[in-house]
């Protein structure tokens, strides 16, 4: 402002010295009359203010455009975010439903797991009992087989003894038959019979 005043003052001084024409005389006279420097200063001030205001208006207008553009952008963003929010809300709702469903399933499966755990425990116990029974059965089966083997061995031995004994008796009978058919060899056959007699151990 001080500069402006100084500038205006210099302009007035310059006008006084450099205008020897009629207008200069007139101006000088007007200055002289209504303190023209003051008015000029006021004018200049007004002009300056006007310029400043104009600049400010221009700045504000550009700001306004900018803000309007920003506002538009923000509106679009808001609309986008709104739609996104709606979508997310829907998704959240769906996820919530899923969560509830999963929670329910989890609960069911937990119960099922507990039941299966119990069943497994029971089955394990049963398996142990069955294994024990199997071992016992196997032992009994082996015992049965052992007895059967012993029985068969005894039967085989008895059969062999009987066959042997029957064969010897048969032979003795044949000898007697011969003895009766050829009495001359009687004494010899008797000797043979005595020799053929089965020992008590063998019979």
């Amino acid at each position: 402002m001080l500069n402006l005043h100084l500038e205006v003052w210099n302009d007035v001084e310059r006008g006084r010295t450099q205008s020897p024409n009629k207008n200069g005389v007139l101006l000088q006279s007007q200055f002289n009359k209504k303190t023209p420097s003051k008015l000029h200063l006021q004018l200049k001030e007004e002009e300056h203010v006007r310029q400043k205001l104009a600049q400010k208006v221009s700045e504000l207008t550009s700001d306004l455009y900018l803000k309007e553009a920003e506002l538009l952008y923000c509106h679009s963003q808001i609309s986008r975010y709104r739609s996104e929010a709606l979508l997310l809300a829907r998704e959240a709702g769906s996820l919530k439903n899923h969560l509830a469903e999963y929670e329910y399933q989890f609960e069911c499966q937990s119960k099922e797991l507990a039941a299966l755990g119990l069943e497994k425990k029971t089955l394990r116990e049963e398996l142990e009992v069955t294994c024990q029974e199997k071992e016992e059965l196997l032992e009994r089966w082996m015992e049965e087989k052992r007895e059967e083997a012993e029985r068969i061995n005894k039967h085989n031995a008895a059969l062999e003894r009987w066959n042997s004994y029957a064969g010897r008796l048969n032979k003795r009978l044949y000898s007697r038959l011969r003895q009766q058919t050829w009495p001359t060899t009687k004494s010899q056959i008797i000797q043979k019979d005595l020799g053929d007699q089965p020992s008590p151990k063998n019979d």
């Binding site: 085989n156 059969l159 062999e160 009987w162 066959n163 029957a166 064969g167 008796l169 048969n170 009978l173 044949y174 007697r176 038959l177 009766q180 058919t181």
Partner: peptide
Amino acid sequence: EGAGLASNSLELSTSLERSVQTRIFK
């Protein structure tokens, strides 16, 4: 008497042969 004894012995022998069981090979 001898013939009677012989026939008896033969019968006995036959019955003995019959009584012999089938042999078993283990």
